[in-house]
Design a protein around this nucleic acid. Structure first.
Length: 105
DNA sequence: GTGTTGACCACAG
DNA sequence: GCTGTGGCCAACA
């Protein structure tokens, strides 16, 4: 059984998020088995060594707010809008675009 | 091993 | 509705 580092699993799950969908840091952490490690997830995405591979712009905060982004929150909003996600002010409708992860593996 | 930092979350005012 | 404070976890110096 291989043991991947925390950020490694974060990148893998983030890459699984389909286009036009968004997830939250808390949900990622919960899917990894660390329901309180939302901060650590954000930390991992912040470094994001897999930048072009991992669509970090599809990850938002639990409230649906854009949160932060290495290139600027404005950039994140623009990309999400291009993906087909409607953003109201600085918030996304998690009720429609919120993607649920599978707690397996 | 200890202390600081950070793209967070929840609660109280 | 927003602001402030405490708590959680992982990575880095």
């Amino acid at each position: 059984m291989i043991k991947l580092s925390f950020p490694q699993q974060v990148y893998r799950l983030t890459a699984r998020v389909p286009k036009g969908r968004v997830t939250t840091y808390s949900r990622l952490a919960r899917a990894l088995g660390r329901p309180g490690a939302a901060r650590a997830v954000g930390n991992a995405l912040n470094r994001n060594p897999y930048a072009p591979q991992v669509p970090c712009h599809r990850v938002v905060r639990a409230d649906g707010t854009i949160g932060g982004f290495a290139s600027g929150s404005l950039r994140k909003r623009a990309i999400l809008r291009k993906e087909g996600v409607i953003i109201k002010g600085d918030r996304v409708d998690l009720n429609k675009y919120g993607y649920e992860f599978k707690a397996k593996r």
